[in-house]
Design a protein around this nucleic acid. Structure first.
Lengths: 245, 245
DNA sequence: TCCGAAAGTTGAACACGTTCAAATCGGAGC
DNA sequence: GCTCCGATTTGAACGTGTTCAACTTTCGGA
Protein backbone atom coordinates (compact mmCIF):
# COMPACT_ATOMS: atom_id res chain seq x y z
CA UNK A 1 0.00 0.00 0.00
CA UNK A 2 1.97 2.97 -1.06
CA UNK A 3 0.57 5.45 -3.44
CA UNK A 4 -1.67 8.09 -2.11
CA UNK A 5 -0.09 11.39 -1.29
CA UNK A 6 2.29 13.99 -2.61
CA UNK A 7 5.87 13.38 -1.71
CA UNK A 8 7.43 16.68 -0.76
CA UNK A 9 5.50 19.53 0.77
CA UNK A 10 2.84 19.90 3.36
CA UNK A 11 4.57 23.02 4.61
CA UNK A 12 3.28 26.50 4.03
CA UNK A 13 6.18 28.84 4.82
CA UNK A 14 7.93 30.29 1.83
CA UNK A 15 10.59 27.60 1.61
CA UNK A 16 13.77 29.66 1.88
CA UNK A 17 16.13 26.72 1.52
CA UNK A 18 16.44 24.10 -1.18
CA UNK A 19 13.43 21.80 -1.67
CA UNK A 20 15.18 18.59 -0.80
CA UNK A 21 14.78 15.58 1.45
CA UNK A 22 18.01 16.56 3.23
CA UNK A 23 17.41 17.85 6.75
CA UNK A 24 17.06 21.61 7.03
CA UNK A 25 18.47 22.48 10.41
CA UNK A 26 16.98 25.97 10.62
CA UNK A 27 14.72 26.70 13.52
CA UNK A 28 11.62 26.44 11.37
CA UNK A 29 12.46 23.01 10.13
CA UNK A 30 13.12 21.80 13.66
CA UNK A 31 9.71 22.99 14.78
CA UNK A 32 8.10 21.42 11.75
CA UNK A 33 9.75 18.12 12.52
CA UNK A 34 8.70 18.23 16.15
CA UNK A 35 5.08 18.70 15.06
CA UNK A 36 5.26 15.90 12.52
CA UNK A 37 6.84 13.53 15.01
CA UNK A 38 4.22 14.24 17.65
CA UNK A 39 1.39 13.97 15.15
CA UNK A 40 2.59 10.63 13.82
CA UNK A 41 3.03 9.19 17.30
CA UNK A 42 -0.32 10.42 18.57
CA UNK A 43 -2.19 9.36 15.43
CA UNK A 44 -0.69 5.91 15.83
CA UNK A 45 -1.59 5.75 19.51
CA UNK A 46 -5.07 7.23 19.63
CA UNK A 47 -6.33 7.44 16.04
CA UNK A 48 -7.29 10.41 13.96
CA UNK A 49 -10.30 11.94 15.71
CA UNK A 50 -9.12 11.40 19.26
CA UNK A 51 -5.87 13.15 18.51
CA UNK A 52 -6.60 16.86 18.78
CA UNK A 53 -4.55 19.65 17.29
CA UNK A 54 -4.15 21.01 20.80
CA UNK A 55 -2.71 17.68 21.92
CA UNK A 56 -0.30 17.57 19.00
CA UNK A 57 0.83 21.12 19.64
CA UNK A 58 1.23 20.52 23.36
CA UNK A 59 3.18 17.32 22.75
CA UNK A 60 5.46 19.11 20.33
CA UNK A 61 5.90 21.95 22.80
CA UNK A 62 4.43 24.64 20.56
CA UNK A 63 1.19 26.59 20.38
CA UNK A 64 -1.78 25.54 18.26
CA UNK A 65 -1.37 28.53 16.01
CA UNK A 66 2.20 27.56 15.38
CA UNK A 67 1.18 24.16 14.07
CA UNK A 68 -1.06 25.95 11.59
CA UNK A 69 1.88 28.04 10.47
CA UNK A 70 3.44 24.88 9.10
CA UNK A 71 0.38 22.84 8.17
CA UNK A 72 -2.75 24.28 6.60
CA UNK A 73 -5.01 21.71 8.24
CA UNK A 74 -5.10 18.60 10.36
CA UNK A 75 -5.51 16.59 7.17
CA UNK A 76 -2.12 17.78 6.00
CA UNK A 77 -0.61 15.98 8.97
CA UNK A 78 -2.08 12.64 8.01
CA UNK A 79 -0.24 12.81 4.70
CA UNK A 80 2.94 13.04 6.76
CA UNK A 81 1.88 9.88 8.52
CA UNK A 82 1.21 8.30 5.18
CA UNK A 83 4.60 9.36 3.85
CA UNK A 84 6.28 7.75 6.83
CA UNK A 85 4.68 4.41 6.03
CA UNK A 86 5.31 4.75 2.31
CA UNK A 87 9.00 5.19 3.02
CA UNK A 88 9.04 2.02 5.05
CA UNK A 89 7.21 0.13 2.33
CA UNK A 90 9.72 1.36 -0.22
CA UNK A 91 12.60 0.19 1.93
CA UNK A 92 11.08 -3.25 2.35
CA UNK A 93 10.31 -3.56 -1.35
CA UNK A 94 13.85 -2.86 -2.47
CA UNK A 95 15.30 -6.32 -1.73
CA UNK A 96 12.23 -7.96 -3.25
CA UNK A 97 12.76 -6.22 -6.57
CA UNK A 98 16.39 -7.31 -6.61
CA UNK A 99 15.53 -10.92 -5.87
CA UNK A 100 15.43 -13.31 -8.77
CA UNK A 101 12.11 -14.96 -8.06
CA UNK A 102 9.15 -15.09 -10.43
CA UNK A 103 6.87 -12.23 -11.35
CA UNK A 104 4.05 -13.57 -9.23
CA UNK A 105 6.19 -14.25 -6.20
CA UNK A 106 7.62 -10.78 -6.23
CA UNK A 107 4.24 -9.13 -6.84
CA UNK A 108 2.75 -11.04 -3.93
CA UNK A 109 5.69 -10.11 -1.73
CA UNK A 110 5.31 -6.42 -2.60
CA UNK A 111 1.62 -6.46 -1.78
CA UNK A 112 2.15 -8.44 1.42
CA UNK A 113 4.82 -6.05 2.66
CA UNK A 114 2.39 -3.20 2.09
CA UNK A 115 -0.19 -4.92 4.25
CA UNK A 116 2.47 -5.64 6.86
CA UNK A 117 3.54 -2.02 7.09
CA UNK A 118 -0.01 -0.79 7.51
CA UNK A 119 -1.25 -3.61 9.73
CA UNK A 120 -0.64 -1.85 13.05
CA UNK A 121 -2.73 1.08 11.84
CA UNK A 122 -5.80 -0.64 10.45
CA UNK A 123 -8.21 1.56 12.39
CA UNK A 124 -6.40 4.72 11.42
CA UNK A 125 -6.34 3.66 7.78
CA UNK A 126 -10.13 3.58 7.86
CA UNK A 127 -10.23 7.30 8.52
CA UNK A 128 -7.36 7.93 6.17
CA UNK A 129 -9.21 6.39 3.26
CA UNK A 130 -12.18 8.60 4.04
CA UNK A 131 -9.95 11.63 3.64
CA UNK A 132 -8.17 10.31 0.57
CA UNK A 133 -11.40 9.43 -1.19
CA UNK A 134 -12.71 12.97 -1.43
CA UNK A 135 -11.74 14.41 -4.83
CA UNK A 136 -10.56 17.87 -3.76
CA UNK A 137 -8.20 16.50 -1.13
CA UNK A 138 -4.49 16.72 -1.89
CA UNK A 139 -4.10 13.19 -0.56
CA UNK A 140 -6.53 11.77 -3.10
CA UNK A 141 -4.63 9.21 -5.18
CA UNK A 142 -6.00 10.85 -8.31
CA UNK A 143 -5.16 14.44 -7.47
CA UNK A 144 -2.50 16.43 -9.28
CA UNK A 145 -0.79 17.06 -5.95
CA UNK A 146 -0.12 13.38 -5.57
CA UNK A 147 1.21 12.92 -9.11
CA UNK A 148 4.69 12.49 -7.76
CA UNK A 149 3.68 9.87 -5.24
CA UNK A 150 1.63 8.11 -7.89
CA UNK A 151 4.60 7.92 -10.22
CA UNK A 152 6.80 6.78 -7.40
CA UNK A 153 4.39 3.97 -6.64
CA UNK A 154 3.96 2.95 -10.26
CA UNK A 155 7.74 3.03 -10.63
CA UNK A 156 7.90 0.09 -8.25
CA UNK A 157 5.63 -1.87 -10.55
CA UNK A 158 7.55 -0.54 -13.55
CA UNK A 159 10.73 -2.04 -12.20
CA UNK A 160 8.91 -5.25 -11.41
CA UNK A 161 7.52 -5.55 -14.92
CA UNK A 162 10.73 -4.49 -16.66
CA UNK A 163 12.73 -7.10 -14.84
CA UNK A 164 10.34 -9.94 -15.57
CA UNK A 165 10.82 -12.30 -18.45
CA UNK A 166 7.30 -13.62 -18.53
CA UNK A 167 6.05 -13.49 -22.09
CA UNK A 168 3.08 -11.20 -22.56
CA UNK A 169 1.35 -8.89 -24.99
CA UNK A 170 3.73 -5.95 -25.53
CA UNK A 171 0.99 -3.37 -25.22
CA UNK A 172 -0.15 -4.93 -22.00
CA UNK A 173 3.43 -4.82 -20.76
CA UNK A 174 3.49 -1.08 -21.34
CA UNK A 175 0.36 -0.59 -19.28
CA UNK A 176 0.81 -3.29 -16.69
CA UNK A 177 2.52 -1.08 -14.09
CA UNK A 178 -0.49 1.21 -13.99
CA UNK A 179 -2.87 -1.71 -13.87
CA UNK A 180 -1.00 -3.20 -10.95
CA UNK A 181 -1.12 0.15 -9.16
CA UNK A 182 -4.86 0.19 -9.71
CA UNK A 183 -5.13 -3.34 -8.41
CA UNK A 184 -3.14 -2.36 -5.37
CA UNK A 185 -5.50 0.53 -4.77
CA UNK A 186 -8.40 -1.87 -4.84
CA UNK A 187 -6.60 -4.17 -2.46
CA UNK A 188 -6.11 -1.31 -0.01
CA UNK A 189 -9.79 -0.52 -0.07
CA UNK A 190 -10.58 -4.17 0.49
CA UNK A 191 -8.07 -4.44 3.32
CA UNK A 192 -9.44 -1.39 5.08
CA UNK A 193 -12.91 -2.91 5.11
CA UNK A 194 -11.67 -6.37 6.02
CA UNK A 195 -12.76 -7.08 9.59
CA UNK A 196 -11.47 -10.65 9.80
CA UNK A 197 -8.86 -11.00 12.57
CA UNK A 198 -5.49 -9.85 11.33
CA UNK A 199 -7.15 -9.21 7.98
CA UNK A 200 -6.69 -12.84 7.03
CA UNK A 201 -9.20 -12.47 4.23
CA UNK A 202 -7.11 -9.90 2.45
CA UNK A 203 -4.07 -12.15 2.66
CA UNK A 204 -6.11 -14.99 1.21
CA UNK A 205 -7.19 -12.71 -1.62
CA UNK A 206 -3.58 -11.89 -2.42
CA UNK A 207 -2.70 -15.59 -2.42
CA UNK A 208 -5.42 -16.26 -4.95
CA UNK A 209 -5.40 -13.08 -7.01
CA UNK A 210 -1.70 -12.92 -7.76
CA UNK A 211 -1.47 -16.34 -9.49
CA UNK A 212 -4.63 -15.42 -11.35
CA UNK A 213 -3.10 -12.18 -12.56
CA UNK A 214 0.03 -14.06 -13.53
CA UNK A 215 -2.12 -16.46 -15.51
CA UNK A 216 -3.98 -13.64 -17.23
CA UNK A 217 -0.79 -11.86 -18.11
CA UNK A 218 0.64 -15.01 -19.61
CA UNK A 219 -2.56 -15.69 -21.53
CA UNK A 220 -2.46 -12.23 -23.09
CA UNK A 221 0.02 -13.30 -25.75
CA UNK A 222 -2.20 -16.12 -27.00
CA UNK A 223 -4.07 -15.44 -30.20
CA UNK A 224 -7.47 -16.40 -28.80
CA UNK A 225 -7.18 -13.77 -26.09
CA UNK A 226 -6.13 -11.01 -28.45
CA UNK A 227 -9.54 -9.31 -28.73
CA UNK A 228 -10.00 -9.53 -24.99
CA UNK A 229 -6.61 -7.93 -24.40
CA UNK A 230 -6.92 -5.30 -27.11
CA UNK A 231 -10.38 -4.17 -26.12
CA UNK A 232 -9.42 -4.13 -22.47
CA UNK A 233 -6.47 -1.91 -23.23
CA UNK A 234 -8.66 0.37 -25.35
CA UNK A 235 -10.97 0.74 -22.39
CA UNK A 236 -8.04 1.52 -20.15
CA UNK A 237 -6.91 4.16 -22.62
CA UNK A 238 -10.23 5.95 -22.26
CA UNK A 239 -10.28 5.41 -18.53
CA UNK A 240 -6.76 6.64 -18.02
CA UNK A 241 -4.97 7.96 -21.10
CA UNK A 242 -1.39 6.81 -21.28
CA UNK A 243 -0.09 10.29 -22.11
CA UNK A 244 -1.33 11.46 -18.73
CA UNK A 245 1.27 9.05 -17.33
CA UNK B 1 -25.51 4.91 -8.82
CA UNK B 2 -27.68 3.38 -6.19
CA UNK B 3 -26.31 1.18 -3.55
CA UNK B 4 -24.73 2.74 -0.59
CA UNK B 5 -26.89 3.20 2.45
CA UNK B 6 -29.39 1.44 4.65
CA UNK B 7 -32.92 1.77 3.48
CA UNK B 8 -35.09 2.31 6.52
CA UNK B 9 -33.84 4.02 9.64
CA UNK B 10 -31.70 7.03 10.37
CA UNK B 11 -34.04 7.87 13.20
CA UNK B 12 -33.22 7.33 16.82
CA UNK B 13 -36.58 7.50 18.66
CA UNK B 14 -37.94 4.17 19.76
CA UNK B 15 -40.14 3.60 16.72
CA UNK B 16 -43.58 3.31 18.29
CA UNK B 17 -45.44 2.73 15.05
CA UNK B 18 -44.93 0.11 12.37
CA UNK B 19 -41.58 0.20 10.61
CA UNK B 20 -42.92 0.90 7.14
CA UNK B 21 -42.41 3.30 4.26
CA UNK B 22 -46.01 4.52 4.72
CA UNK B 23 -46.20 8.04 6.12
CA UNK B 24 -46.45 8.20 9.88
CA UNK B 25 -48.52 11.28 10.61
CA UNK B 26 -47.60 11.60 14.27
CA UNK B 27 -46.00 14.82 15.34
CA UNK B 28 -42.58 13.24 15.57
CA UNK B 29 -42.66 11.99 12.02
CA UNK B 30 -43.71 15.41 10.79
CA UNK B 31 -40.75 17.03 12.51
CA UNK B 32 -38.45 14.37 11.16
CA UNK B 33 -39.67 14.99 7.66
CA UNK B 34 -39.27 18.75 8.00
CA UNK B 35 -35.65 18.25 9.03
CA UNK B 36 -34.97 15.82 6.20
CA UNK B 37 -36.57 18.11 3.64
CA UNK B 38 -34.57 21.11 4.79
CA UNK B 39 -31.36 19.12 4.93
CA UNK B 40 -31.80 17.74 1.43
CA UNK B 41 -32.58 21.14 -0.03
CA UNK B 42 -29.72 22.91 1.72
CA UNK B 43 -27.24 20.16 0.93
CA UNK B 44 -28.24 20.44 -2.68
CA UNK B 45 -27.94 24.22 -2.66
CA UNK B 46 -24.80 24.84 -0.67
CA UNK B 47 -23.02 21.53 -0.32
CA UNK B 48 -22.15 19.50 2.75
CA UNK B 49 -19.75 21.68 4.74
CA UNK B 50 -21.42 24.98 4.06
CA UNK B 51 -24.72 23.65 5.30
CA UNK B 52 -24.60 23.90 9.09
CA UNK B 53 -26.79 21.97 11.48
CA UNK B 54 -27.97 25.32 12.82
CA UNK B 55 -29.08 26.32 9.34
CA UNK B 56 -30.91 23.05 8.80
CA UNK B 57 -32.66 23.35 12.15
CA UNK B 58 -33.60 26.98 11.54
CA UNK B 59 -34.89 26.19 8.07
CA UNK B 60 -36.98 23.36 9.46
CA UNK B 61 -38.25 25.59 12.24
CA UNK B 62 -36.84 23.52 15.07
CA UNK B 63 -33.96 23.80 17.50
CA UNK B 64 -30.55 22.27 16.91
CA UNK B 65 -31.02 19.86 19.76
CA UNK B 66 -34.24 18.67 18.23
CA UNK B 67 -32.49 17.68 15.02
CA UNK B 68 -30.18 15.54 17.10
CA UNK B 69 -33.17 13.86 18.67
CA UNK B 70 -33.96 12.38 15.28
CA UNK B 71 -30.52 12.04 13.74
CA UNK B 72 -27.44 10.96 15.65
CA UNK B 73 -25.12 13.04 13.49
CA UNK B 74 -24.90 15.28 10.46
CA UNK B 75 -23.68 12.27 8.50
CA UNK B 76 -26.98 10.53 9.13
CA UNK B 77 -28.68 13.27 7.17
CA UNK B 78 -26.58 12.69 4.08
CA UNK B 79 -27.86 9.14 3.93
CA UNK B 80 -31.34 10.63 3.69
CA UNK B 81 -30.13 12.67 0.75
CA UNK B 82 -28.70 9.54 -0.75
CA UNK B 83 -31.96 7.63 -0.26
CA UNK B 84 -33.85 10.36 -2.06
CA UNK B 85 -31.65 9.97 -5.12
CA UNK B 86 -31.71 6.20 -4.93
CA UNK B 87 -35.50 6.28 -5.05
CA UNK B 88 -35.39 8.40 -8.16
CA UNK B 89 -32.89 6.07 -9.77
CA UNK B 90 -35.12 3.12 -8.99
CA UNK B 91 -38.09 4.84 -10.59
CA UNK B 92 -36.15 5.60 -13.72
CA UNK B 93 -34.76 2.09 -13.94
CA UNK B 94 -38.15 0.38 -13.83
CA UNK B 95 -39.15 1.03 -17.47
CA UNK B 96 -35.67 0.08 -18.62
CA UNK B 97 -35.92 -3.36 -17.03
CA UNK B 98 -39.26 -3.91 -18.68
CA UNK B 99 -38.00 -2.91 -22.08
CA UNK B 100 -37.05 -5.66 -24.47
CA UNK B 101 -33.68 -4.40 -25.57
CA UNK B 102 -30.40 -6.27 -25.26
CA UNK B 103 -28.47 -6.93 -22.08
CA UNK B 104 -25.86 -4.35 -22.95
CA UNK B 105 -28.33 -1.66 -23.91
CA UNK B 106 -30.23 -2.05 -20.69
CA UNK B 107 -27.11 -2.19 -18.55
CA UNK B 108 -25.82 0.98 -20.18
CA UNK B 109 -29.18 2.66 -19.69
CA UNK B 110 -29.23 1.74 -16.00
CA UNK B 111 -25.76 3.12 -15.44
CA UNK B 112 -26.49 6.27 -17.45
CA UNK B 113 -29.64 6.99 -15.49
CA UNK B 114 -27.63 6.68 -12.31
CA UNK B 115 -25.20 9.29 -13.58
CA UNK B 116 -28.09 11.50 -14.67
CA UNK B 117 -29.72 11.42 -11.27
CA UNK B 118 -26.53 12.35 -9.50
CA UNK B 119 -25.23 14.84 -12.06
CA UNK B 120 -26.65 17.97 -10.37
CA UNK B 121 -24.85 16.98 -7.17
CA UNK B 122 -21.39 16.16 -8.39
CA UNK B 123 -19.68 18.36 -5.83
CA UNK B 124 -21.77 17.01 -3.01
CA UNK B 125 -21.08 13.46 -4.10
CA UNK B 126 -17.39 14.14 -3.58
CA UNK B 127 -17.98 14.67 0.11
CA UNK B 128 -20.48 11.87 0.26
CA UNK B 129 -17.97 9.35 -0.98
CA UNK B 130 -15.53 10.49 1.67
CA UNK B 131 -18.11 9.63 4.30
CA UNK B 132 -19.16 6.37 2.68
CA UNK B 133 -15.58 5.18 2.31
CA UNK B 134 -14.82 5.00 6.01
CA UNK B 135 -15.46 1.44 7.25
CA UNK B 136 -17.32 2.18 10.45
CA UNK B 137 -19.83 4.46 8.78
CA UNK B 138 -23.37 3.12 8.38
CA UNK B 139 -23.41 4.51 4.84
CA UNK B 140 -20.41 2.43 3.82
CA UNK B 141 -21.53 0.18 0.95
CA UNK B 142 -19.96 -2.76 2.76
CA UNK B 143 -21.46 -2.19 6.20
CA UNK B 144 -24.07 -4.46 7.72
CA UNK B 145 -26.38 -1.47 8.11
CA UNK B 146 -26.52 -1.07 4.36
CA UNK B 147 -27.17 -4.75 3.67
CA UNK B 148 -30.73 -3.97 2.69
CA UNK B 149 -29.74 -1.22 0.28
CA UNK B 150 -27.04 -3.45 -1.15
CA UNK B 151 -29.54 -6.20 -1.81
CA UNK B 152 -31.96 -3.72 -3.26
CA UNK B 153 -29.31 -2.50 -5.66
CA UNK B 154 -28.15 -5.97 -6.60
CA UNK B 155 -31.79 -6.92 -7.12
CA UNK B 156 -31.86 -4.49 -10.04
CA UNK B 157 -29.00 -6.34 -11.62
CA UNK B 158 -30.58 -9.64 -10.66
CA UNK B 159 -33.67 -8.76 -12.64
CA UNK B 160 -31.54 -7.59 -15.52
CA UNK B 161 -29.57 -10.81 -15.62
CA UNK B 162 -32.59 -13.07 -15.11
CA UNK B 163 -34.42 -11.49 -17.99
CA UNK B 164 -31.54 -11.73 -20.41
CA UNK B 165 -31.16 -14.56 -22.86
CA UNK B 166 -27.52 -14.04 -23.61
CA UNK B 167 -25.76 -17.35 -23.31
CA UNK B 168 -23.16 -17.43 -20.59
CA UNK B 169 -21.44 -19.67 -18.08
CA UNK B 170 -24.13 -20.68 -15.55
CA UNK B 171 -21.91 -20.05 -12.55
CA UNK B 172 -21.07 -16.63 -13.88
CA UNK B 173 -24.75 -15.96 -14.35
CA UNK B 174 -25.30 -16.68 -10.66
CA UNK B 175 -22.66 -14.18 -9.66
CA UNK B 176 -23.11 -11.59 -12.35
CA UNK B 177 -25.51 -9.36 -10.41
CA UNK B 178 -22.96 -8.88 -7.66
CA UNK B 179 -20.20 -8.31 -10.18
CA UNK B 180 -22.25 -5.66 -11.92
CA UNK B 181 -22.94 -4.00 -8.57
CA UNK B 182 -19.20 -3.97 -7.94
CA UNK B 183 -18.60 -2.51 -11.37
CA UNK B 184 -21.19 0.16 -10.68
CA UNK B 185 -19.42 1.01 -7.44
CA UNK B 186 -16.21 1.48 -9.35
CA UNK B 187 -18.00 3.64 -11.88
CA UNK B 188 -19.31 5.88 -9.12
CA UNK B 189 -15.82 6.36 -7.75
CA UNK B 190 -14.59 7.17 -11.23
CA UNK B 191 -17.44 9.59 -11.87
CA UNK B 192 -16.85 11.43 -8.62
CA UNK B 193 -13.24 12.05 -9.58
CA UNK B 194 -14.06 12.89 -13.17
CA UNK B 195 -13.45 16.59 -13.65
CA UNK B 196 -14.21 16.73 -17.38
CA UNK B 197 -17.14 19.06 -18.12
CA UNK B 198 -20.40 17.29 -17.53
CA UNK B 199 -18.35 14.20 -16.65
CA UNK B 200 -18.06 13.33 -20.34
CA UNK B 201 -15.24 10.97 -19.61
CA UNK B 202 -17.40 8.77 -17.41
CA UNK B 203 -20.04 8.57 -20.11
CA UNK B 204 -17.38 7.57 -22.60
CA UNK B 205 -16.23 4.87 -20.22
CA UNK B 206 -19.75 3.48 -20.00
CA UNK B 207 -20.02 3.48 -23.79
CA UNK B 208 -16.88 1.42 -24.04
CA UNK B 209 -17.05 -0.71 -20.93
CA UNK B 210 -20.57 -2.05 -21.37
CA UNK B 211 -20.00 -3.66 -24.78
CA UNK B 212 -16.75 -5.03 -23.40
CA UNK B 213 -18.57 -6.58 -20.47
CA UNK B 214 -21.17 -7.97 -22.83
CA UNK B 215 -18.39 -9.49 -24.88
CA UNK B 216 -16.72 -11.00 -21.82
CA UNK B 217 -19.99 -12.45 -20.57
CA UNK B 218 -20.66 -14.02 -23.93
CA UNK B 219 -17.14 -15.38 -24.11
CA UNK B 220 -17.50 -17.08 -20.73
CA UNK B 221 -19.35 -20.04 -22.21
CA UNK B 222 -16.55 -20.81 -24.66
CA UNK B 223 -14.32 -23.71 -23.73
CA UNK B 224 -11.09 -21.77 -24.13
CA UNK B 225 -12.19 -19.24 -21.55
CA UNK B 226 -13.26 -21.84 -19.01
CA UNK B 227 -10.16 -21.66 -16.80
CA UNK B 228 -10.29 -17.88 -16.89
CA UNK B 229 -13.91 -17.89 -15.84
CA UNK B 230 -13.59 -20.61 -13.23
CA UNK B 231 -10.55 -19.13 -11.57
CA UNK B 232 -12.07 -15.69 -11.63
CA UNK B 233 -15.17 -16.98 -9.91
CA UNK B 234 -13.06 -18.80 -7.34
CA UNK B 235 -11.33 -15.53 -6.58
CA UNK B 236 -14.67 -13.81 -6.23
CA UNK B 237 -15.78 -16.53 -3.83
CA UNK B 238 -12.88 -15.72 -1.53
CA UNK B 239 -13.35 -11.99 -2.00
CA UNK B 240 -17.05 -12.07 -1.37
CA UNK B 241 -18.52 -15.47 -0.40
CA UNK B 242 -21.79 -16.15 -2.11
CA UNK B 243 -23.47 -17.30 1.11
CA UNK B 244 -22.99 -13.78 2.47
CA UNK B 245 -25.33 -12.72 -0.30
C1' DT C 1 -61.20 15.43 34.75
C1' DC C 2 -56.86 14.69 36.31
C1' DC C 3 -52.20 12.25 36.72
C1' DG C 4 -48.03 10.56 35.25
C1' DA C 5 -45.06 8.79 32.11
C1' DA C 6 -43.41 8.96 27.62
C1' DA C 7 -42.40 11.73 23.65
C1' DG C 8 -40.83 15.78 21.97
C1' DT C 9 -38.34 20.22 22.34
C1' DT C 10 -35.23 23.75 23.89
C1' DG C 11 -30.97 26.55 24.21
C1' DA C 12 -26.95 26.98 26.67
C1' DA C 13 -22.55 24.74 27.06
C1' DC C 14 -18.58 21.94 25.46
C1' DA C 15 -14.69 20.45 22.59
C1' DC C 16 -12.80 20.78 18.54
C1' DG C 17 -10.56 22.71 14.03
C1' DT C 18 -9.24 26.96 12.41
C1' DT C 19 -8.05 32.10 12.08
C1' DC C 20 -5.70 36.22 13.16
C1' DA C 21 -3.81 40.42 15.13
C1' DA C 22 -0.28 41.12 17.89
C1' DA C 23 4.10 39.87 20.25
C1' DT C 24 8.72 37.99 19.93
C1' DC C 25 12.89 36.41 17.87
C1' DG C 26 17.18 36.42 15.03
C1' DG C 27 20.24 38.04 12.03
C1' DA C 28 21.80 41.48 8.17
C1' DG C 29 23.39 45.99 7.57
C1' DC C 30 25.15 50.13 9.61
C1' DG D 1 25.85 47.99 19.84
C1' DC D 2 21.67 49.44 17.43
C1' DT D 3 17.91 49.22 14.18
C1' DC D 4 14.93 47.15 11.27
C1' DC D 5 12.48 43.53 8.87
C1' DG D 6 10.99 39.15 7.92
C1' DA D 7 10.40 34.69 10.05
C1' DT D 8 8.34 32.62 13.83
C1' DT D 9 5.30 32.18 17.75
C1' DT D 10 1.45 33.10 20.67
C1' DG D 11 -3.20 32.68 22.68
C1' DA D 12 -7.57 34.52 22.48
C1' DA D 13 -11.59 34.24 19.61
C1' DC D 14 -14.76 32.31 16.06
C1' DG D 15 -17.81 28.90 13.99
C1' DT D 16 -18.77 24.36 13.91
C1' DG D 17 -20.80 19.58 15.36
C1' DT D 18 -22.49 17.58 19.37
C1' DT D 19 -24.34 16.87 24.24
C1' DC D 20 -27.41 17.45 27.97
C1' DA D 21 -30.28 18.78 31.83
C1' DA D 22 -34.39 20.91 32.03
C1' DC D 23 -38.75 22.16 30.15
C1' DT D 24 -43.26 21.38 27.51
C1' DT D 25 -46.56 18.65 25.12
C1' DT D 26 -49.20 14.56 24.33
C1' DC D 27 -52.03 10.90 25.61
C1' DG D 28 -53.63 6.53 27.89
C1' DG D 29 -55.80 5.07 31.98
C1' DA D 30 -57.96 5.84 36.71
Amino acid sequence: MGSVTHTDNGSSPAAPAARGRAADTSRGEQTRQAIVTSAIRLFGEAGYEKTTMRAIAADAGVSVGNAYYYFPAKEALVSEFYLELQREHLARVEPILSSGTSFGDRLAAILREGIEVWAPHHAFAGRFIGIAAVPGSPVSPFSTESTQARELATSIFHRLVDSTETKMDPQLRARLPQLLWLAQLGLVVYWVHDTTPGQRRTRAVVDLAVPYLEYLVGASRMKIFKPLTTRGLALLETLWPHAAR
